Amino acid sequence: MTVSTAPEPDLSTWPTGRLLAVAARLVEQRWVAVLAGLDLTHAGLIALHTLRGGPLPQRTLAQRCQVTDQTMSRTLGRLTKAGFVTRTPDPADGRRHVTRMTASGRAVLDRAVRAEREDPGLLGGLGDDDAFRARLLSLIDGLSAGG
């Protein structure tokens, strides 16, 4: 077996889509490591972010996070075990559960948000760049509208 000794490709020649895909993978790998250090997953972060406005029934939380009830149940199980949320029977309907973020959950959400903004290695220093965020939002909106 021979090992290639070819020089690194000139990234400036790559199509923009490929550059975006590589950047997304690199950011995701770093973000997963940051979240793991906080005892969180992407799914857990999304659930906590969604709960920041107040308690929600589990089904509503799943719908807002755009996941199945079963997926949300697993996510909430991990968050409950970590002490980031509580689930209690809904007083209006005992068949449902209401999920509330705990003080620990709010603290870990705040740490995750701070890490994104302040860790220069995570987004190459772009975490608190409002213009960059605005361009990303515009890109996502444009792609979502066209698809």
Rank of each mutant, 00 (worst) to 15 (best):
S104D: 15
G142W: 05
R95H: 12
V22P: 03
A115V: 07
G147I: 07
S138P: 01
T5G: 14
R114V: 08
Q29V: 02
L19T: 09
V3C: 08
Q66N: 14
V3K: 13
R25I: 07
S12N: 04
G147D: 00
G44Y: 00
T41L: 07
D90L: 09
G146I: 08
L76S: 03
R30L: 04
D119I: 03
T41A: 10
A115I: 07
A112H: 01
W31P: 01
A82Q: 11
G127I: 08
A33T: 13
T99D: 04
L40I: 01
G94K: 09
L79Y: 02
P15A: 08
G17N: 12
F132W: 14
T99S: 07
S104I: 00
P15L: 02
L122D: 02
V34Q: 08
R95K: 11
S12F: 06
A92P: 03
R117G: 14
L122C: 06
T102P: 07
S144W: 10
T75F: 02
R52T: 13
G142A: 09
S12P: 03
D69F: 10
L61P: 01
L56T: 03
R74W: 06
C65S: 15
R74K: 15
H97R: 11
L40C: 03
G127P: 05
S144N: 14
T88A: 15
D141F: 01
R30K: 11
L136P: 01
G94D: 13
W31A: 09
S144C: 11
P120I: 08
M101S: 01
P9A: 14
T13I: 10
T102S: 15
P57I: 12
G127V: 08
S12H: 01
Q70W: 01
R18L: 11
S104F: 05
T102I: 13
L76R: 02
G125M: 07
M101Q: 03
L122V: 05
A36W: 00
G142Y: 02
Q70T: 08
G94E: 13
A134Q: 14
L143T: 10
L123A: 10
T50K: 10
T2W: 04
F132Q: 11
V108H: 03
V67C: 14
R117F: 05
A82K: 08
Q29H: 07
T68F: 00
G105N: 08
A112Y: 02
S73A: 14
T60P: 00
R59N: 10
G77I: 10
M72C: 07
T16S: 14
T102D: 13
A92E: 10
T68I: 07
P55M: 13
T41Y: 04
R95M: 06
M72L: 13
